[in-house]
Amino acid sequence: MSKEKIAICEDLADIMPPEYHDMVENATFGNQDRSWKDIGSSKELIEQHSLCAGCPESIAFRFIMSSIPNPEDSVFVGSTGCTSLVFPHVGIHNIHSLFGNQNAVASGLKRALAVRFPDRIKDVFVLAGDGATVDIGLDMTMQSWFRQEKFTTICFDNELYANTGGQESGLMQRGFVAKMAPKGKNFDKVRLPEIAFEAGCHYVAILTVSKPNRVEQAIRRATYVAREFGPTYIQLYTPCILEIGKQSMEGLDEMKDSESIGGRFVMRELMTDEVKAFLKEKEAEDKARRKKAKTVTA
């Protein structure tokens, strides 16, 4: 897929529902400075979703889809879970993998795309829940990092198995009692960000999705670093409001509480000095380009 492919045949254009015309004419494909601020004013790459009302995961989806720099040449690899209910609705290529296999599938895909399109930047993202990333799929996740596969792994961390009814997961907090974990968890939350960094990820971030600017920054950084250096990892807290006994309106507060000082989701970034220097340069370049574009427009 590329931007040139996103066009409607002229002879049948008049019978296409308006949302498709919107997609072609007003989506942010091809705009390298696309951002979460386009949500609401441009055709979004995810409009409707099948998640619960107020689900923080749906917010995360919107921020991620609006932040990736190259949607027309990006592919998402997902795994079974609430995320997989959303993928049929997104305007980006995606592959559904067998549970836990997502990083293995993404490895093959990224390599194949590099062979098939050597002159084109093709971004691959894994987007899976904590069960697929940290428990059942940990082998595939970590092996892809050891092999230095050049793609970004995004984990939607809701600290349990949400869509099967609330079983204990590795990322659950110690002592937490869930519907199907009535005795409470008796070991600590797996420190996957630190493990990821030690396993070879060049950029790691852990945060909630309460602040779109931060999510966008993390996604863009992870994407750029994955292109140049190797694997990157982002862990986003997307609490399951149903499984932790919250109302639809309380997801945002839950995320804000968890990222307040001393909280387990205070934003952290781990990166090497080389990556730090690279990002500094890249972000300065982007800033200069945007400034120049603004001056020209004015």
């Binding site: 254009a13 019978i15 296409m16 529902p17």
Partner: peptide
């Protein structure tokens, strides 16, 4: 014939 473009 259905014409479903935004103008229609």
């Amino acid at each position: 014939q259905f014409v479903t473009a935004r103008e229609g």
